[in-house]
């Protein structure tokens, strides 16, 4: 509660809230912003918003999974009808696919920095294929389980299994769409600095999201089969 009585007499007294007296260069902490002069578009700023936006979105996705996880833990602790699912082998394949895809995506992103080549494209495509492979593999796991007679309603563990993999899959699908957008979109002309920065920021955002989905899957994998 650090307010002070400022009984200033002159206008030159700085504004309240203790802002520095000289004009700060930007709106607080974040990289340069000089949007005040429109001849110099604020590249960093508009690029940054994709990164910030992605972090913010991830926070909310994390809350969704936190909520489902706590439901999982409470439900597991409070009932006698819990029959643990045997770990479907195919899940190891899914896990491997998504782990590798994170690597290939990282490679693509590195290549993208080098604005002159198109070398990122194959990596990006590979990532998308691996991601698709993950989804297919998940689907196959579902098919397998269904064939074994393990349905959503069979018992709470299977319910949660389907819910977690389904919700994760839906989010991954979103990532896949973003990836395809990245690989399909026209390369920014390298002489247009603004467009390049923008493209890089978009790629960073998608990469961040994808890595998060990867980690999230690892977390779910452990939660579903190794926490008891």
């Amino acid at each position: 509660m650090a307010t002070t009585v400022t009984d200033s007499r002159t206008l030159s007294k700085k504004g309240i809230g203790g802002g520095p007296k000289s004009r700060p260069s930007n709106g607080g902490g974040l990289p340069k912003r000089n949007g005040h002069d429109r001849a110099f578009p604020d590249l960093d700023s508009s690029a940054n918003r994709y990164r910030i936006g992605t972090w913010v979105a991830l926070a909310s996705i994390m809350m969704l999974f936190t909520a489902l996880s706590s439901a999982y833990i409470v439900r597991a602790a409070s009932s006698s009808d819990w029959q643990p699912l045997a770990l479907p082998r195919l899940l190891w394949l899914s896990t491997a696919l998504i782990l590798i895809s994170s690597g290939t995506l990282e490679a693509a992103r590195r290549k993208l920095r080098d604005a002159t080549t198109n070398a990122y494209k194959p990596w990006l495509l590979l990532t998308a294929v691996l991601g698709l492979g993950f989804l297919v593999s998940q689907m196959l796991v579902w098919r397998q389980l269904v064939r074994q007679g393990v349905y959503v309603v069979s018992n709470p563990h299977s319910s949660f299994f389907y819910v977690f993999t389904g919700v994760h899959g839906a989010h991954l699908l979103g990532g896949l769409i973003a990836l395809s957008y990245l690989s399909l979109r026209k390369r920014a002309p390298s002489e247009n600095q603004a467009a390049v920065t923008q493209a890089q920021a978009g790629a960073d955002a998608v990469t961040l999201y994808w890595h998060f989905m990867d980690l999230l899957w690892l977390y779910l994998f452990v939660l579903l089969f190794y926490v008891r």
């Binding site: 309240i16 203790g18 520095p20 260069s25 709106g27 607080g28 974040l30 979105a57």
Partner: peptide, 24 residues
């Protein structure tokens, strides 16, 4: 609401004009 919240937070963190510190 989530889409809205995402937008508000990013806008406020990223798009303040020159001199608009948090405490202003």
């Amino acid at each position: 609401s989530l889409l809205g919240a995402l937008n508000f937070i990013t806008t406020l963190l990223n798009m303040r004009t020159r001199g608009m510190t948090l405490m202003r």
